[in-house]
Computed example of a mutant assay.
Amino acid sequence: MYDVRTANPVDLEAVIALVTRLQQEPAHRVAFHGETPQEVAEELAAIEPGWPACAVVAADRNGRVRGVLSVEVDHGQRRAYLYGPYVDVPANHPAAGNLWQATADSMLDQARWLPAMAGVHTLELFGHRENRLLADFATRHGFTAAMSTRCYTLTAAPLRSLLVRNTPDDRVVPLPADPAVRAAVSALHDRCFPGAPTTGAQLVTGDRHTVVVLAGEKGLLGYAAGYTQAEEYYVDMVGVAEDARSCGVGRSLVRRLLGELSGADGVRDRAAALIRTGNDASERMFTKLGFELAEELVSYQADVTRAHRRAV
């Protein structure tokens, strides 16, 4: 059994190396993290109020970091996203599965007592479909599979071709300051993505997302929102009004969004989007743009308050 403790700033370099290595294997991959040291470092740096205060690590008898669980808390929704658990178990260990689960359980127990977790009602996990360790961990701790998604990517030459040959629809523009347009985007977002981590109000007032919109004679037809990460452009959301679907609106929005991200943040070799399984229209839209299926992911959700009531 590894020793589990709250993270220290000096652990960061070892944690980035550990996560980067395990992210290369679908059997260990957690979808909240990227796959390169730059992506992992960027994601951990964005955790508020600071990564060490929102993480626990597991160390072996020599003090080497062999596991980590980080949490990102949305206090507005009383929700915590679990970046992990990651446990590095030697391949020849006689009880590798038991060691992984025991360490993961201990890290979750300690993470729940972090000050940042005060008031959290919901926990979320998100991992590769082949990460059976995570699936078993989720079942044991009362998580249920909330939804499955597919990751589509556009890489290398096809992405460059789309950006270079992109003839933007001049009706698609960056989100204007007009309060009426912003209110319409917020309302459409909340209709299209109820319960999403980012609410409509946060989307139009925050600075994380780049947002583009397309308006017609009768009002807003749709919007797309995304941001640039260390290694990729990420298309986070595409919302199209109910009476404007299947008309190419989504493709026009994504093209303009990728152009905006490229112009603002420079060249990346990949664009990615997550699509909920069963959303055939979105899969067709991204496929027509050249995106290809890269992997399937599963999210898990637990009601902490309900679990607490059962325990009491």
Rank of each mutant, 00 (worst) to 15 (best):
S148F: 08
T155N: 06
T155I: 07
T155D: 04
L159G: 00
R160W: 09
R160K: 13
S161T: 10
L162F: 12
V164N: 14
V164M: 14
P168S: 08
P168T: 06
D170Q: 14
D170V: 09
R171K: 14
V172C: 08
V173G: 03
V173I: 13
P174T: 10
P176F: 08
P179H: 10
R182Y: 14
R182K: 13
R182Q: 14
A183F: 07
A184L: 08
A187N: 07
L188Q: 05
L188G: 00
H189E: 03
H189A: 03
D190L: 07
D190A: 06
R191L: 08
R191H: 08
R191D: 05
F193C: 01
P194H: 13
P194T: 12
G195R: 13
P197W: 12
T198F: 10
T199H: 10
A201V: 15
A201C: 15
A201T: 14
Q202C: 05
T205D: 12
G206R: 11
G206I: 09
R208H: 13
H209V: 01
V211F: 01
V212C: 10
V212R: 04
V212T: 11
V212Y: 03
V213S: 03
L214E: 02
L214M: 09
A215K: 06
A215I: 04
A215V: 03
E217H: 15
E217M: 12
E217S: 12
G219D: 15
L220Y: 05
L220D: 06
L221G: 01
G222R: 05
A224H: 01
A225C: 09
Y227D: 01
Y227N: 01
Q229K: 04
Y233R: 05
V235G: 00
V235Q: 00
V235W: 00
V235T: 01
V235R: 00
V235H: 00
V238K: 01
V238I: 12
G239T: 01
G239P: 00
E242M: 09
D243A: 10
D243R: 15
A244K: 05
S246L: 15
C247M: 12
G248H: 09
G248V: 05
G248W: 11
V249P: 05
V249M: 13
G250M: 06
G250Q: 02
L253M: 09
R255C: 04
R255L: 02
R255H: 09
R256G: 07
R256H: 14
G259W: 06
G259L: 06
E260C: 01
S262M: 07
S262N: 11
A264L: 08
D265N: 08
D265T: 06
V267S: 13
R268G: 02
R270W: 02
A271V: 07
A272F: 04
A272G: 06
A273R: 02
L274C: 04
R276P: 04
T277R: 11
G278T: 11
D280T: 11
A281S: 15
E283W: 09
R284F: 15
R284Q: 14
R284Y: 14
M285G: 00
M285Y: 03
F286W: 10
T287M: 02
K288W: 11
G290A: 12
G290K: 14
F291E: 00
E292T: 12
E292G: 11
L293A: 15
